[in-house]
Design a protein around this nucleic acid. Sequence first.
DNA 1: TAAATTAGCGTACAATTGTACGCTCAACTT
DNA 2: AAGTTGAGCGTACAATTGTACGCTAATTTA
Lengths: 205, 205
Amino acid sequence: MGVRAQQKEKTRRALVDAAFNQLSAERSFSSLSLREVAREAGIAPTSFYRHFKDMNELGLTMVDEGGLTLRQMMRKGRQRAEAGGSVIRISVDTFMEVLESNPNVFRILLHERSGTSAAFRAAVEREIEHFISELAHYTEAQANRTPVLARAQAEALVILVFNAGASALDSKRSERKSLADQLVLQLRMVATGAEALQHKIDNRA
Amino acid sequence: MGVRAQQKEKTRRALVDAAFNQLSAERSFSSLSLREVAREAGIAPTSFYRHFKDMNELGLTMVDEGGLTLRQMMRKGRQRAEAGGSVIRISVDTFMEVLESNPNVFRILLHERSGTSAAFRAAVEREIEHFISELAHYTEAQANRTPVLARAQAEALVILVFNAGASALDSKRSERKSLADQLVLQLRMVATGAEALQHKIDNRA
DNA sequence: TAAATTAGCGTACAATTGTACGCTCAACTT
DNA sequence: AAGTTGAGCGTACAATTGTACGCTAATTTA
């Protein structure tokens, strides 16, 4: 890569990083301004357009990147689980760790999921869909579920995890432990229920 | 109530209604401007302050009102259920109807739940808490659950319903049916799972 | 009836925003 | 070596925003 392209990439990263940096519990993506982001990235407002068509394009990039980051971290966690132990427990724990180290990555997904841009909502949904189908395939094979059931179960699990994540963002570390416990209980509930429903179907056949 | 107070109340309503009106899939509360709301309500921007300290106060009012509306409609639906039939199925159906007739009421709750104002998030959480505890008490009595279990179950149910509501807002009517079916399946999953976990506890004792 | 209150208005202002336009100059291509 | 490209800049402008301030006129209170 030439010197020029390298520098451009660097600036682009600075923009993305600046935007992620400005996210917080009090600041959503849609409240960021092009000028502020450019300022923090150290370039003139108008130079922003050399990298993104508009703020939306930046945002969608962030969603994609964020989803990828999250999935990678969760996958790493799952490898840890293969050494033995409850998959549910370990997954919840890694999730909570990810949340702690990358709150803004999770924040943008969480917020834009119910945001005002259809494109954003779709992008987030796509990311979540990755989680769901990964999980669905896992349970379909592992627990011998009907595809429909596996899908419904996986979706429920992911939703519950995301929801707990949202609560966790708003709570002190001391409260997070019981939050995680409650989440584990709920996930077991779903897993057990799916198991039972599956048996009912199997016996009927 | 005097003529004066009556007129004031009327204007206040106009403001709240105007704000609800301006909500849409593309427009969240935080993107509304004081001026626009005042314009639609037919008053001067500065007159807004005669009714609310600022936009936040308006928004919190809307969340409270919205939560109340939702609960009332759901309660009405539950009465219908008492005539017989699956509680889950009927609740899901009424929920979907509520969603169709009052999308913006649901929208503000959904959006501000993961919004940028701690006060808003807390207000929404309070409203959701109403749903959860109502439901928890119901199952605790009805199905003889441990309080902890009843609580976890109720929370899971509500979360899943809310989540499906969010999806429903984004889908055409034709897709809503299968969405409702999937939701029912998930709710049964949780109910069945809770039942099983409860038995496990009971037998251990 | 006289005095006090107050909903609503109009004017005004400082901030901030997105972005159009044209320039520069370093990097790249031929 | 000569010519082209394009990242980044500075200036400029029109919109829109929240809100301070003081007035009017109708209702309420005394």
